[in-house]
């Protein structure tokens, strides 16, 4: 049963703010082995023109993906998550995510396509700070592989 095209354009309510912590950024930078001081040293980040430590470019994925759970788990959409793989990932930044940000995500189903029995869905996440300013847009492409003939 292909996904219902009428869900294209559907937006979900903005998420409660996620507060970006310095130590969470440090933990992530250490986990990817990245010693860039802009992630851990506020003075180094300031020397680059940032008000506080910034997060590595892909840090924000976890926040966007959690928000996309509203789409993935929407019973009306009926996505079979056990068949889903992450196809593509994109980020478009207005500015880097930084410590102290309180980020809210609005998820929208951007496209739904059906190819060779696979459902391919792009979920866009518009991520804004507490002032409502745009920080980053994420596009998560999910591919639900065709169910096996049984």
């Amino acid at each position: 049963m292909p996904l219902d095209q009428s869900f294209v354009g559907r937006s979900y309510p903005p998420t409660a703010p996620y507060e970006v912590g310095r130590e969470k950024i440090r933990e992530f930078a250490e986990a990817v082995g990245d010693a860039n001081p802009a992630y851990t040293d506020p003075e180094a980040a300031k020397a680059l023109g940032h008000p506080d430590v910034i997060a590595p470019p892909t840090f924000v994925f976890a926040i966007a993906f959690r928000a996309a759970g509203q789409v993935i788990e929407d019973p009306q959409l009926g996505l079979d998550y056990s068949r889903v793989v992450h196809g593509d990932q994109k980020f478009a930044y207005s500015r880097p995510v930084r410590a102290g940000d309180r980020l809210s995500v609005t998820s929208t189903i951007e496209t739904i396509r059906s190819m060779a029995g696979n459902d391919i869905m792009d979920v866009r996440g518009e991520i804004r700070d507490e002032a409502g300013e745009h920080v980053v847009t994420t596009i998560i492409k999910l591919v639900a592989r065709a169910a096996e003939e049984g």
Partner: peptide, 18 residues
């Protein structure tokens, strides 16, 4: 890219296919 650019904030767009 970020090691080359020095400032990770210089990355304005990034996308991949797995």
């Amino acid at each position: 890219v970020t090691d080359w650019a020095g400032d990770p904030g210089a990355v304005v767009d990034y996308g991949v296919r797995f």
